[in-house]
Design a protein around this nucleic acid. Structure first.
Lengths: 219, 219
DNA sequence: AAATATTTTTAGGCTTGTCTAAAAATAATA
DNA sequence: TATTATTTTTAGACAAGCCTAAAAATATTT
């Protein structure tokens, strides 16, 4: 239906627009896709011709419903494959993204459906990101950043804001995985660091850099 | 490493050479790949430049060890994915080929290894074709065609010579699946049809067209 | 508001993989 | 063997996706 490249452009534009970036500028797309602004302009014109996005010269782009559908479906496939790699093949959560970047372009609706069923209809991928439903609905998660959470509430580690392998590997190292529970015991104004108490009364410190990239849910 | 297209050319040439076709001619490749002879010539030159095959003008081609390795690895991935689709996702054996045509090009050695392990190191795909080992060895199966088998031996249905969806669907319809056992009770010279006795003493007839496309193993 | 900086677009070109039409080589037949 | 038929290759062209360099538009400073 759509090429590997077209899907990647649509997915990138979709993600940038989700991140609040209201007007999606050429350079931002080029940056994410590791290509040049001139190439982005070329492709944008083609995608606009196919009614996948609205484009006005020098004014940035916005996906049409048709384009958003393709993007969301690509995200859905990406996250389902990540679940497969993590849950079934036992890859680390820092390893699944790269492989899913390839698998997300496999084109078979029935495959996606069967995979979904095989995985028992997961709602979130291994990084805590929501998996869009077959019809493109994404359930909004009520996650907050650990650095914004209040003390004395039970918090459940539910996701990450930084998806880089180095960050995920750091969390591995300090045994922070999805599902662990904690309570903030101390928030230090000076450096933004946070002390928490884990189940089993173990305590742990997070630097601001880490705390601002951990998503938690208030239990 | 190698493009989708390059892998498909190498796989096709490999398969044609396995089918006994000693000199692989341009037209045969074009036929399989649904393209034109001129395109094949172009690609052959590029693959020869990359030392993936030996090529002499008007004399046909032969894979080098390097090229064969790529081809066999693609076949390995194809068949492992077919096992996954069949065993885990419960696709029919007539449905797995098309999807595996896409999945075979996913490039990740560790993924292939983990998939192999997840599937418990299968030796044959859902059509009875052998799965090459990681280092490219293909165990030769001692299967024979049902039409060439002798009466009064216990035969195990082990594979198919015709991989088309229509043939596989026909076998579904008459409940012929891998693993069923049978003994030939009658071979008709006139039309080449074969009568067999299945376990449970049920009997069944195969036309020559069917019998010549069923592979069995003498138990 | 004018000058400068940044962003975006255009122009022209490259590679991959494809095509058609014509030429060259090989194979088959009279 | 000469002729015809088939196969293969060459020549030239095209679309997709990318590039660099330069021009145009927009944003930011002074």
């Amino acid at each position: 239906m759509y090429s590997y490249t077209e899907e990647n452009y649509l997915k990138t534009i979709y993600k940038l627009s989700e991140q609040g970036n209201d007007s999606i500028n050429t350079n931002a797309i080029a940056e994410v896709l590791q290509t040049k602004a001139a190439s982005v302009t070329d492709m944008i014109k083609k995608l606009a011709d196919k009614k996948l996005l609205n484009y006005e010269k020098y004014k940035g782009v916005a996906l049409t419903d048709k384009g958003r559908k393709v993007a969301v479906d690509t995200v859905r496939k990406h996250r389902l494959w990540e679940c497969f790699l993590y849950d079934k093949l036992k890859f680390g959560w820092d390893e699944v993204h790269e492989i899913a970047e390839q698998l997300e372009h496999i084109n078979s609706e029935i495959l996606t459906d069967k995979l979904d069923e095989f995985l028992d209809f997961p709602t979130h991928d291994p990084h805590g990101d929501p998996i869009p439903s077959k019809n493109g609905v994404i359930k909004k998660s009520n996650f907050i950043l650990l650095c914004d959470a209040k003390p004395n509430q039970t918090l459940v580690m539910s996701g990450v804001a930084d998806h880089t392998a180095v960050f995920l590997q750091h969390l591995n190292k300090i045994s922070v995985v999805l599902g662990i529970e904690m309570q903030i015991t101390e928030k230090n104004e000076y450096d933004g660091s946070i002390a928490v108490k884990l189940s089993g009364n173990k305590s742990m410190y997070f630097s601001k850099d880490v705390a601002k990239n951990i998503l938690v849910k208030v239990k």
